[in-house]
Amino acid sequence: MMKIGVLALQGAFIEHEKMLASLGAESFEIRQLKDIDQPMDGLIIPGGESTVQGKLLRELGLMEPLRGLISGGLPVFGTCAGLILLAKSIDGGEAPHLAVMDITAKRNAYGRQLGSFAANGVFKGIGSVPMTFIRAPYISSTQGAEILAEVGGKAVAARQGNMLVTAFHPELTEDTSVHSYFLDMAAAARESAAV
């Protein structure tokens, strides 16, 4: 059984846990350093406020250990704020957080809550998926990551090795396909590590 750690500092982490449970994967919450003592096959960084999660990552001493795990190949999936936390650079000169993925994120790229929207988009390797954007970012440029989905000409999903990000929230819809995609990534990583 796949075991996924879900960063639970702030935001919509319970929605990810439910999604994982519906796909038969186990999950546990990461709220402080001792929570990552256990082995995991993957990590999810949920939506919420990236400023809050970034600050708590630093102050709870989780930033370096998680950066090390991700750089060492731990599969990671970031949605919305998670995308911003993983990006190596953020438009507007804001300091990056985990800074492991070769993308540039534009925060609040669609404006305030009145700019939030739902759409259907084509996700490479999956097909059409429902996408919910809540005060969402997009990927303004990539420096090595592969773009997996675009909406309105803007990159909203990308992958680089074992890192997957979406600007939208698959955990807020009924569609489990993006989470399945991530669990497949995690399973492949586990197999290649076992060889």
């Binding site: 935001g11 919509a12 919420g48 809050v52 939030s116 739902a118 809540i134």
Partner: peptide, 18 residues
């Protein structure tokens, strides 16, 4: 109703916060 859904979703993003 779409709008209502998006608005509930924003509240979900605030969870666990102050």
């Amino acid at each position: 109703s779409d709008r209502l859904e998006l608005n509930k979703n924003l509240a979900q993003m605030l969870k666990g916060g102050v």
